[in-house]
C-alpha cells in the first residue's frame, strides 16, 4: 500500500488508469474485512476478559439469584435455550424443508398463487422478530390457549426462522443440476423417487448448513421471547412443554440492566457461553458442508 503514500507513484499509476483503481478497490475490500473482523475480535476480547473471572461451574450448575450474585448461575436459562432450540429444530426444519421441496420441485411457477407464496416468503424473512413475538402472544398463547410455556416460545422462534430455512433449502435444491433429475427420470424413477434418492442427498449439505444458520439466529433472539413473557427469573428447569422458561439472551439482558457490577460480570460470562454455543453450531455447519459437498 506504499504506492498510495508517495504521490509520484500514484500519479504514474493513475496515468495507467487501471492499477490505481484496482489498488483502491482492493484497499476498500481489505478495510471492510478488517472492520468486520476487528469488531468481532473486540467483542470477543471484551466479553472474555470481563467474563472469564466468572466463567466456572457456578454458571451452569446454579440457578439465578438476586440476593447472592456471587452464587448466581444461568442453569435455567441454558436449559431453557436448549429446549427452545430443540423444539424449534423439530418444528421448523421438517416443515421448512418440505415447503422448499414443494416450491422447487412441484409448484408450477406460472400459477399466480405460487408466485404470491414465493413473494410472501421473501417478505416474511424481513419482518422484525418482535412482530413474531406479538403474533405468538395474541394467537398461540391466547386464542389457541397454549399459554406461556416453552412450547409457545419455540413456536414463535419456528415461525421466525421458517422463511430462512425455506429460502436456504430452496437454494440448495436448486443447486442440484437438472441433469441428475433428468437422468433419474429417464431411467424410469418416479418424481418422488428422484427427489428422495437423488435430489435430496445431493442437496443435504446445503440444507443442513442453512438450517443450522437459521437455528443460530433463533438462539440469539430475545425480543419475541420477552414479549411472550419469558421470565427473567426462573429458578427451575422446564420439565414439560407448558412450563415457564427463561433463555440465555433474556437472562443476559436482565443482568445487564441490573445496578450491581457483579451481575454485569455474570452477563459477560453468560455471553461467552452463548457465543461458544453459536460458534459450535456455525462450525458444525461448515464441517457438514465441507464433508458432504459434491462438485459437479
Amino acid at each position: 500500500m506504499t504506492v498510495l503514500t508517495t504521490p509520484k507513484t500514484a500519479v504514474r499509476l493513475a496515468a495507467k488508469g487501471r492499477p490505481l483503481r484496482e489498488h483502491l478497490f482492493r484497499l476498500a475490500l481489505v478495510a471492510s474485512l478488517v472492520i468486520a473482523l476487528g469488531f468481532l475480535a473486540l467483542v470477543l476480547y471484551s466479553m472474555i476478559s470481563k467474563g472469564m473471572g466468572r466463567f466456572d461451574a457456578r454458571l451452569w450448575e446454579n440457578m439465578p439469584s438476586i440476593r447472592r450474585p456471587e452464587a448466581a448461575g444461568a442453569q435455567s436459562a441454558i436449559t431453557g435455550t436448549m429446549w427452545l432450540i430443540g423444539l424449534t429444530a423439530v418444528m421448523a426444519l421438517p416443515t421448512g424443508i418440505l415447503a422448499a421441496i414443494y416450491l422447487e420441485e412441484y409448484a408450477d411457477r406460472t400459477r399466480w398463487y405460487n408466485r404470491v407464496i414465493e413473494l410472501n416468503i421473501q417478505n416474511l424473512a424481513a419482518i422484525p422478530s418482535i412482530i413474531y413475538g406479538i403474533l405468538a402472544l395474541g394467537i398461540i398463547a391466547r386464542v389457541l390457549g397454549l399459554g406461556f410455556g416453552v412450547l409457545t416460545g419455540a413456536i414463535a422462534l419456528s415461525l421466525l426462522v421458517l422463511p430462512i430455512v425455506i429460502i436456504s433449502a430452496r437454494e440448495a435444491i436448486r443447486a442440484v443440476p437438472p441433469s441428475i433429475r433428468e437422468g433419474s427420470l429417464a431411467l424410469g424413477a418416479t418424481q418422488w423417487q428422484t427427489i428422495y434418492r437423488q435430489v435430496l442427498p445431493a442437496a443435504i449439505p446445503g440444507i443442513a448448513t442453512g438450517s443450522i444458520l437459521a437455528l443460530s439466529r433463533a438462539i440469539g433472539e430475545a425480543a419475541p421471547l420477552i414479549v411472550l413473557g419469558a421470565a427473567t427469573f426462573v429458578p427451575f428447569n422446564p420439565e414439560s412443554l407448558f412450563d415457564r422458561f427463561s433463555a440465555l439472551p433474556v437472562q443476559i439482558y436482565f443482568w445487564i440492566t441490573q445496578s450491581r457490577e457483579e451481575f454485569h460480570l455474570l452477563a459477560a460470562a453468560a455471553i461467552v457461553i452463548l457465543l461458544a454455543l453459536l460458534l459450535l453450531m456455525n462450525s458444525a455447519a461448515i464441517l457438514l458442508r465441507n464433508r458432504y459437498q459434491k462438485r459437479y
Partner: peptide
C-alpha cells in the same frame, strides 16, 4: 438431526 434435537429437548434432565 433428530438425535441432536431430541438430546436438546431432553436436556431438562430427569422428569420430576
Amino acid at each position: 438431526t433428530f438425535l441432536i434435537a431430541l438430546t436438546a429437548a431432553c436436556g431438562g434432565g430427569g422428569a420430576d
